[in-house]
Design a protein around this nucleic acid. Structure first.
Lengths: 247, 247
DNA sequence: CTAGAGGTTGACGTAGCGTCAAGGTCAAGC
DNA sequence: GCTTGACCTTGACGCTACGTCAACCTCTAG
């Protein structure tokens, strides 16, 4: 009492190719092989096949399934291990979704520039040389990870500081303050502190701060944050002075 | 002003093998190839590489990345499409996690038997023949899908009906009612209705219901739901009579 | 006897590189 | 000038779980 490969495939809801594959990898051998080479499967094979397909539907890999079916591993135990893997995958997906959403907002809005873009823009596009000699290895991806690793709340807080800073800079520029004056220098100090919060290691050096100021002026996307080229020029001047005096 | 393959790999935080691969698939060619065959990359290549790695970190595939970088597709557009894919994947994972959890509870608890097991147990383990001739194709996997496709709430509701039904059967059996009586037959009617809710197509036939009743008695795991063999026997008798009279 | 359905093995394709393997090239030290 | 070690090249297999031809037998019904 047995079935051909097509028959058992239909019974179990899979394909003959899959059955041949299982035969190849030793997961499920035919119960009998005819003199003509045809594979035949009996009731035991069907039962085993059904367990295989069930575990497969739960997402287990072939080696894991084999372990369970050959009694080397407890069903529940294997599934619990598998569950942990699934949950990790889900977390990874969640993080990736968050990253993609952030990036989309950034691209679509053309709005407020965000941390990533600031860093990337500075790090690579504009100051490759300096980045190379200062952080050499992989600053871009590190900064990316830095941002991704923050919680939503932390990201929001960081953005908040950036907004406040930009607003204060704009106000100071509009008020016609002296870039070398105490108020502007205090702002520069806050700016440096804010930058230091970005990652642990890379230092806010004189060259870094000066280069950053130049970029704020040169790149209109950054300039927009400080009220255009005029405001950005004010920021640049104040930062340069601050850097020369303090770094 | 260019870098060797190792140098640029370190700069961007990837490996030389990856760069060769990108060269092979045409995603990123070296800016220059020395007479010795060495690959050299310049600033433009570095910039492109960084965009590649960023998109890769967001989970895009190489063809998608190529489209974006070659300007055939808008960044944001591509990412939105990708986002939908990610969300689908997440849903799939969620469903799988739920399935695995259910299965684990089932295995560990040895507790209340659940729908899946009822169906699987009936469909394949005990009544292969009948399943084969009645639904032939792939009833197991369909029933599995049926269950998985229900929301948590729906599953809970279905379970609730099952529990209520089991309790009523037990009460009737304990009360010493007549399996052929109106009360027992009404219960049998409810039981049939409940079964019909399981999937759309397969009909609750006379043979099916009779076979099911037999299994309730024969399989202690099912019998336990109806107060042991005695209770299950009562259910079986009532179902058989109901089936003969109405199906 | 013949057509058509079904069976067999063999081998390539998939995504994105990791990982040898075998063999040139380059810069530095003796 | 030679050796050594670091770095470069191309070529090819490996990984997951089969899908999909291709070329070629076998069985069954008319």
């Amino acid at each position: 009492m047995d079935w051909s490969i097509q028959e058992i495939a239909r019974l179990a809801g899979t394909t003959s190719r899959t059955l041949r594959h299982y035969g190849e990898v030793g997961l499920l051998e035919p119960s009998r092989i005819g003199s003509n080479g045809y594979r035949y499967y009996d009731g035991l094979a069907l039962a085993r096949l059904q367990r295989v397909l069930m575990l497969r539907d739960l997402g287990l890999g072939i080696p894991a399934i084999a372990e369970v079916l050959d009694g080397q591993r407890d069903d529940a135990e294997a599934l619990v291990g598998h569950l942990r893997w699934l949950e990790q995958e889900k977390e990874r997906l969640d993080r990736q979704i968050a990253s993609v959403e952030t990036t989309i907002r950034k691209l679509k809005g053309g709005e407020q520039l965000m941390a990533e873009e600031m860093l990337n823009g500075f790090d690579h596009t504009h100051y490759k040389e300096e980045v190379e000699e200062r952080w050499g290895e992989q600053s871009y991806r590190e900064s990316n990870r830095w941002w991704s690793s923050m919680s939503k709340a932390e990201q929001a807080a960081w953005m908040q500081r950036q907004k406040q800073l930009a607003a204060d800079w704009q106000a100071a520029a509009t008020a016609g303050l002296d870039p070398a004056g105490d108020e502007a220098q205090a702002l520069a100090n806050r700016h440096a502190d804010w930058l230091r919060g970005i990652r642990g290691v890379p230092p806010v050096s004189r060259a870094y701060l000066t280069g950053l100021g130049d970029m704020y002026v040169a790149d209109e996307r950054f300039a927009a944050n400080y009220g255009g080229v005029e405001g950005a020029s004010f920021v640049r001047d104040a930062l340069r002075l601050y850097a020369e005096r303090n770094l």
